[in-house]
Design a protein around this nucleic acid. Sequence first.
DNA 1: CCCAATCCTGTACACTGTAAAGAGTTATTT
DNA 2: AAATAACTCTTTACAGTGTACAGGATTGGG
Lengths: 271, 271
Amino acid sequence: MAEEIAGLGDPIRTLELMWGRAPAPKRGPKSRLSVAELVAAAVAIADAEGIGAVSTRRVAEAVGISPMSFYTHIPDKAVLLDLMLDAVATGQAGEPTTPDFHPANWRANVTLVARSFRSFYLAHPWALQIGTHRPVLGPNTIRAYDNFLSVFDGLGLSEVEMDLCVILVANYVHGAVRDVVRAKMVKAQTGMSDDEWWYTIEPFLQTMDFSPYPVASRVGAVVGELYGLGDHDLAFDFGLERILDGLERLIEGKAATPPGAATVDGKPPSA
Amino acid sequence: MAEEIAGLGDPIRTLELMWGRAPAPKRGPKSRLSVAELVAAAVAIADAEGIGAVSTRRVAEAVGISPMSFYTHIPDKAVLLDLMLDAVATGQAGEPTTPDFHPANWRANVTLVARSFRSFYLAHPWALQIGTHRPVLGPNTIRAYDNFLSVFDGLGLSEVEMDLCVILVANYVHGAVRDVVRAKMVKAQTGMSDDEWWYTIEPFLQTMDFSPYPVASRVGAVVGELYGLGDHDLAFDFGLERILDGLERLIEGKAATPPGAATVDGKPPSA
DNA sequence: CCCAATCCTGTACACTGTAAAGAGTTATTT
DNA sequence: AAATAACTCTTTACAGTGTACAGGATTGGG
């Protein structure tokens, strides 16, 4: 398995493809396929078999062209990955652009987008494995960003603070969902669940001396007994709640402070 | 780049290698190399050229054995990746196991471990690209976990809560450092900085209609003008500060509540 | 008509992880 | 001492990857 770094191709060409702005060819045969068909086929493969199964040959075969014809439509695999990411980004299909936000309850709104972001990763786990080299500035991605930002709008935060809040929550969700996705993928590939794995290694762990790690062994014992390898849903909600508390202090500080006194990092001027 | 999923090999064998507990071979020629030498060579390659440059052949060549001899020492590449992760985990070498924690200032302590965790990823960016299938239960990794946990010890938190706090902060750091690392890697591979990339695509962006994304375009304009693609250090500190505020509410609540009253999962601690 | 642009294809190369089989070395058993 | 089992290391081989290159087929503009 390799690294899957996307976006090393010509940035302009990538953007043109993503926005459907590629200049229409004047001469030559009409192509039998659209870029969208290739991307859809690639996404289908990734959803079904993981990103590792997505190769240029596989995608070409899926749409019924020869391996090298792929490169007629998409410059290289990195661009394909960018296109895939934007294709599945929340905001298209049946999903409403702006779901039912509570006007006066920003905590509920943030929880909503965080959960929806989490659901996105659970639906397309391979998205976690793609390391985009540059931000994917496609229409769907930007719509998702817009949607995410809007839950922090009108709360007295500066634009920079709004951006930082989105980054904070997005980073947290990304990190939190990684473990769940990993466990699922490994289970699918090996047939061994986290629990089975744990029981397999447990006898070995018994033979070892954990006294150099006092806190870890104490906590690990309690946590392991209660949840095995950990309850991912519980961990997600716990972390999100802490982040919401942290944001609340920032936002309440803003409400109590006249606009203009705002500082970039959002520290409430503790009088 | 591909997925680099680690840990699909025999779990016990992996643990034995990681803890140096492999039963010493009784017959046969002495091997000229130790597993540690192979792992060190792999880490050196990854540090210098990225995880993509780490192949079993490259590692074998680096230590002066034939390609297939690699498999005499390490079952497969997935195990190598696990060994690499534990080899670089914080806690070994000259680093003190427990740096100078302030006894009464947990915020400073959390900030310290968070920054140190961040430094780790910046020193070994390839660690971000490895998706471990199972937790890496090596000595260095556990020591790092122990160290991380200890900053939440003695604050009135339950064991489960301590674990969840570590997960929260670790997830956040992981997510936050991703962008910095990505930018660095792309710059190294393409010679194009984020700023140069931005200037390249800017003319294209000018031709587009962003009115469907009102909040994003407003925020993007301000943020882009101030920081280009974003100030990663600023974003890191901002997010960490919010998280610390959130943790503070939890911890202060604990201090005001007699132990045994309530825990996050509702289960009372053994009291 | 001619030619340039474009789509599609087959061949080829260097690279990957690793299966399989064997050669050489060593310690234990007979 | 001889046989054997265990071990290290090697060569060969295979199926897969991304994609460079060269050419054939088709289309529209001059």
